[in-house]
Amino acid sequence: MSVEHAKTLEFWQEFRTGPSAQAPYDDRFPVQVGKRMLDLPIRPLPDGTHAVASLLVNHASFDVLDAIVAEMTDAARAFAPDVIVGVPTLGLTLAPAIAHALGHDRYVPLSTSRKFWYDPALSVPISSITTPDQSKTLGLDPNLLPLLEGRRVVLVDDVTSSGVSLAAAVSLMTRADITPAGAVCAMTQTRAWMDRVRVPVRAVFATPRFVRDGAGWRPMAETLPPVVSEGACCCPAP
């Protein structure tokens, strides 16, 4: 069965004003952002039998993005952060706005673009569920290390799915002798990340894996993650 390519231009642009769709879902899945509902496109996976809901914050309207940032800021505030650290790629879209909303002067970006002055000791391998064939290195500019030392650090990412990116960020912080207080994401996608990410995670909304049901998609209840997780205590670093 061929993979369907969902047209997503209409998504992430405005909040739903009418009643939300019900399962089995056609091409969209409703999630709650504050007191409003947002439709996410459902993207079939390569097996043609399963699917996931999708969020691309850099495709979102400013209205939707501002609302997500506001909810993420409240979630981050619960960790009482001194510093917000952005996880590439799309976590860098959200982290500066969250840091600004918290009253911070700046944020600290991690990077997958290695500069010649980076210290190999402050880098870890990383991959993404959306680009599995591309190996990258996640690094911290050593010039930014003094901003993190002895401070309460919270990581910010857009979506946690496999957990590989977020786990790599935690591992990188560990290399710098920093234990993050937690992580904040716009969306947690399925439960695959929960045994990999070793810090508490808070999300604005959570989405399950879907299975084909006739012409539509039915959520697999056992795959729905919590919006607040305490983190896996004993999982090995990536």
Results as ranks from 00 to 15, higher is better:
residue 25 Y to H: 13
residue 44 P to S: 14
residue 128 S to H: 12
residue 115 K to V: 02
residue 133 D to E: 14
residue 60 A to S: 15
residue 200 P to F: 10
residue 223 T to Q: 09
residue 115 K to W: 01
residue 206 A to Q: 10
residue 145 L to D: 05
residue 212 R to M: 11
residue 136 K to N: 13
residue 36 R to V: 11
residue 80 A to G: 00
residue 1 M to W: 05
residue 156 V to Y: 05
residue 148 L to S: 03
residue 32 Q to I: 08
residue 235 C to M: 10
residue 214 G to M: 12
residue 62 F to C: 10
residue 162 S to A: 15
residue 235 C to T: 14
residue 164 V to L: 12
residue 15 F to V: 06
residue 24 P to V: 00
residue 37 M to V: 15
residue 238 P to W: 06
residue 173 M to S: 05
residue 191 R to L: 04
residue 19 P to F: 09
residue 53 A to V: 07
residue 164 V to R: 14
residue 14 E to K: 15
residue 149 E to P: 07
residue 81 P to N: 05
residue 203 A to E: 08
residue 58 N to W: 05
residue 150 G to N: 09
residue 228 V to W: 06
residue 55 L to R: 01
residue 73 T to L: 01
residue 189 Q to V: 13
residue 153 V to D: 01
residue 130 T to M: 00
residue 99 A to C: 06
residue 110 L to D: 05
residue 138 L to E: 00
residue 25 Y to W: 10
residue 125 P to A: 06
residue 147 L to T: 00
residue 162 S to P: 02
residue 94 L to Q: 03
residue 208 P to L: 12
residue 223 T to M: 08
residue 179 T to R: 13
residue 171 S to I: 00
residue 98 I to F: 07
residue 110 L to W: 07
residue 234 C to K: 07
residue 37 M to G: 08
residue 131 T to M: 10
residue 100 H to F: 13
residue 176 A to L: 00
residue 206 A to L: 10
residue 77 R to P: 00
residue 56 L to R: 13
residue 208 P to S: 12
residue 111 S to D: 07
residue 27 D to E: 15
residue 163 G to V: 06
residue 199 V to D: 09
residue 123 S to Y: 03
residue 69 V to Y: 01
residue 72 M to K: 04
residue 152 R to P: 07
residue 95 A to N: 02
residue 171 S to C: 12
residue 2 S to T: 13
residue 200 P to A: 12
residue 63 D to G: 08
residue 82 D to Y: 05
residue 213 D to L: 09
residue 201 V to D: 09
residue 76 A to R: 03
residue 115 K to Q: 09
residue 162 S to M: 04
residue 21 A to F: 09
residue 107 Y to M: 15
residue 30 P to K: 11
